[in-house]
Design a protein around this nucleic acid. Structure first.
Lengths: 340, 340
DNA sequence: GGACGACCCCAAATCGTTTTGCTGCCAGAT
DNA sequence: ATCTGGCAGCAAAACGATTTGGGGTCGTCC
């Protein structure tokens, strides 16, 4: 009984040593045929490969990671994977690094600083080879231990004070400016904006303001309202706007979800879009083409952002690039559809 | 130069040995204060903790994983994180296991069997503590090595032939039946269905058929068409349906995306929903409430599925449960909105 | 014939933890 | 005075790979 138990009790996977002993060589040799780091005679290699196959050997990656000090895993920390923007970004990243054999470890922070810090530490301790940080614009809150400075970081949408940090930032300001001047060029006079919460999305507001100035449109304070990025928030902000003495005839929303909320209000009030009121969003999420009429918006290149983050990361991990932080900015083109 | 280099060259993080030497104790003791697995005198513990703090020591998780043979990481393999259903499921899982200190490693398979297998192996080799497999209904394609049988697996939406495999399956059939009988009870006569691709979503079709039989509605073959789960696929399927000699007056779609595509057709044809044609979907994705009119659909409890998958996994990982595969089925309630 | 390379392969150290025995030591009971 | 038993701490062996210095064996060229 205890014997048969022991026989079937191969609780641990087969190790490199077992392969070696079966092939009649040393573990070193097995390792070398696996990695190809040193030449091994073809005959020997054959024996080893045969043994590997017969035993069904698979290398223990954890052990390898410990020895080589790299995990072939990268962490992506986002506010919420449920948010399509971050889901797409994550996918872009995953696709970019997958071919090189890197896995992706995702962390949801809900935008809370302490969770950001926690996951950051966690990822570091787990020995990830790189981190892409897409958790809002609060990135600068994180501080680094000495040891953390070894690991490359990519920051999306913001800069970060770290020696090995590259940034990829969608050009929010130019995109917003394009949206706002488009509205002006269409002849809309009383253009309003639903911004993000205080301290967020400053670039989008800046782009809007700059376009208004260029188009010689005055924007009284009551036409600059705020939402919390959600559909509901947009709904309420739009309500406030529509309750104004002089109603805006166009509104630029800092993101699509809020624009959809604004659209809800228009429908509710029986306003026709874009005749009575024009609406432009930002992000170009899937839902933008689902709503009726389809939402005119600015495309936020999530997939590309994730992809270039992956590329930047890999260029550092491979040692191909070592140097100061790079910044790549991605264009955010205006997508004309039905709401403006 | 070389000296100062060596000084700043603390390439590796501080180890438990350094802490031990600074505190004047053995690594063993440090480990014990960290894990609490054995008592250590309060004075000693104080010294150790002080040393830890002064040095900024953080344990090397990779080394720990190697020794303890567990990674506190679980893998979730999904077709596409970009699909809201899987994003939500993943989030439910992450939230469930996060508190216990488990990270989540996500793999996108795009539903391709070879990628499923690849990621499965990859996850195993990386030493994850558990896997939740949500990649379609093709799960049964995967085969296991002897060693893989040690790791618990949760299968979502399907069963899997593995000794330690639990399943959580949304009750597609009952949900579909509810949707279809609802349609019948509303008096619709010529009820059609847009199914998933061949071999997929069989339960949803079965529920539909069973309800039709119970309601004594005949469903001629031309009223059972297929889409590929996408909006476009739904669009085309609906086109075919509307081109029929006798038009259906209601159509049940196997998922929301296809339902939205169907809705596109209705709008295009100037048909009013639900007067001219009723539409019911399945999944209750966010977009279901964005479309006009809002989509009547069956709720697919993604978040809960992820959460219970996490719970089942943890009960096994902790050793609290060891035993045959459990199956928990989650109800899929009908959500009445505007399209039926 | 000896020197010198090429070519293979191995032993042993290493990565940074956790986990066993095991050893002193001191207090209290016999 | 001896024994028992618990407490605190340490040394050393894992965990499963990679890496490096070195040592055979052979062939070739002076």
């Amino acid at each position: 009984m205890s014997r048969s138990e022991a026989a079937s009790d191969q609780r641990s996977r087969v190790t490199i040593a077992q392969v070696a002993s079966r092939a009649g060589v040393s573990p070193t040799t097995v390792s070398h045929v696996l990695s190809g780091k040193r030449a091994v005679a073809v005959a020997t290699r054959g024996t080893v490969i045969k043994a590997i196959r017969e035993l069904g050997y698979r290398p223990n990656i954890v052990a390898r990671n410990l020895r080589t000090r790299q995990s072939h895993m990268i962490a992506v920390v986002v506010p919420d994977i449920t948010n399509p923007f971050y889901a797409v970004l994550t996918r872009g990243l995953a696709d970019a690094v997958d071919a090189a054999g890197h896995g992706t470890y995702v962390c949801n922070t809900d935008g809370q600083h302490d969770r950001e810090r926690k996951f950051f530490q966690d990822a570091m301790d787990r020995g990830v080879d790189g981190i892409v940080f897409a958790s809002g614009e609060t990135a600068s809150q994180v501080t680094f231990g000495e040891a953390d400075k070894q690991t490359p970081i990519i920051c999306i949408g913001d800069q970060l004070d770290h020696p090995l940090c590259d940034a990829v930032i969608p050009d929010d300001e130019t995109g917003s400016r394009a949206a706002a001047s488009f509205l002006a060029s269409r002849g809309y006079q009383r253009i309003a904006m639903i911004q993000g919460p205080p301290h967020y999305g400053a670039a989008r507001t800046a782009g809007f303001r700059s376009a208004m100035q260029a188009a010689k449109r005055k924007v009284p304070a009551e036409r600059m309202v705020r939402g919390d990025w959600t559909r509901k928030g947009g709904y309420e902000a739009m309500k406030a706007l529509m309750a104004l003495e002089v109603r805006p005839d166009a509104v630029f929303c800092a993101n699509d979800l809020m624009a959809i909320g604004a659209l809800d209000v228009a429908h509710e009030l029986g306003l026709s879009v874009p005749q009575d009121v024009a609406i432009v969003g930002f992000d170009d999420v899937d839902a933008a083409t689902i709503v009726t009429p389809r939402l005119t918006t600015v495309r936020n290149p999530a997939y590309e952002a994730g992809g270039t983050a992956g590329d930047l990361l890999m260029s550092r991990m491979s040692g191909r690039y070592t140097g100061a932080g790079r910044t790549v900015v991605l264009p955010c083109p205006l997508i004309e559809r039905g709401t403006a």
